[in-house]
Design a protein around this nucleic acid. Structure first.
Lengths: 207, 207
DNA sequence: GTCTATAAATCGATAGAC
DNA sequence: GTCTATCGATTTATAGAC
């Protein structure tokens, strides 16, 4: 009877861990992302990562092959998430303003679910090795698609005829900085945040 | 005659260098800022800095006492520039919208003149040692003053009655990211850039 | 003011026991 | 799958010659 009880507790704990991390490698990546956000990729050591997990640094290499592989996993998966999100927005037959709103929602959603990884995507991409060129292409394509939506919005007189580059970088800078202050705004539900952001970014703040 | 000519060339070159760097220490700081922007503080070594100046790493220590002192010089001087700029804006007897426009101009001006240092201010402040608390206080005070201007603008019905934190962080995120794309927009003169930014940030982009 | 040489600590990563 | 032990390279910083 005791054995059955203990056994069920162990299973329960295992299931809880499976809910949080789908593998030991995944745990390394998520733990690293937290540390990378705090100090940046270069200032975090393999010993730091191991200590945060309660193991020794050498043990990490049984699950990943290098520190570089951790960074690459964090950044590329997020960059591809933005790329696939943008592709869905582009093909829809909607106004450019609705497309801009969907981009805002895309950033809020991804950042809400990956507040730590977003720091690496923004600040540590230059430390990518093999995957640097691939990352740069994804980012360039994303910005080009974003710029196209703005330019078409101007052409179809949905948006004001102001400098499209200033519009692009103003909106994109705000969306890329979301990871810094979303954690402190946990009272705001993502839908409300996206709605407020949309209002401020698209309509301005002057009465 | 030849000696006089050569001498005048040397003096002329010395004057040119004095125009660029006011001391060897200043040259170290400015050179470091360029490298810090490219790779971040932690990934830049004293050898990197020395190599960029054409000397050996040990020679740096005749002018500065530590790598930390370089970072501290870059960040604190910029943070104090923002603080003193904000104080001038606060005391003026003007509308809150004019104050917001002056803040935008403050960021454009400082960033135009310190595009490299602004990267450290944004991304490497957590590596400050002794000066970390002082930096955090300057930043906290700056954001509080910014928030006060927005709140008073709402109270006096100059601004829409939307979430003031979303307004603050939307504008501030864009202004803090200026260092990333001002270098590639060298065709835009600072006054035009500030004017376009003001239009987009305050009035929005929808027609 | 710059150099060579080097100290002392720490880095990413590997070998091999268990 | 985690450990101890360690390698070889690299780090910041110092000592002392010139």
């Amino acid at each position: 009877m005791l054995q059955i009880l203990v056994s069920s507790i162990i299973i329960s704990k295992t299931n809880l861990q499976l809910l949080k991390y789908e593998s030991r490698k995944d745990e390394i990546i998520q733990t690293s992302a937290i540390l990378f956000k705090k100090k940046g990729f270069s200032a975090v050591t393999m010993r730091d990562i191991a200590k945060a997990m309660g193991i020794k640094a050498a043990s990490l290499y049984n699950h990943i092959s290098s520190k570089q592989e951790i960074l690459s996993n964090i950044i590329i998966s997020l960059a591809e998430e933005f790329t696939s999100g943008m592709e869905g927005i582009l093909v829809a037959n909607e106004s450019n303003i609705i497309k801009l709103n969907k981009i805002i929602n895309l950033h809020v959603d991804i950042t809400t679910n990956n507040q730590f990884g977003m720091a690496s995507l923004n600040n540590d991409w230059m430390h990518l090795d093999d995957k640097l060129e691939y990352y740069l292409k994804l980012r360039r394509d994303y910005e080009d698609n974003f710029r196209t939506i703005i330019n078409e919005g101007i052409n179809e007189q949905e948006l004001i005829d102001s400098n499209p580059d200033v519009m692009l970088f103003s909106i994109l800078s705000t969306l890329r900085s979301l990871y810094i202050w979303i954690p402190s705004k946990e009272d705001l539900i993502p839908e409300t945040l996206a709605s407020n952001l949309s209002s401020v970014l698209l309509n301005g703040i002057i009465k």
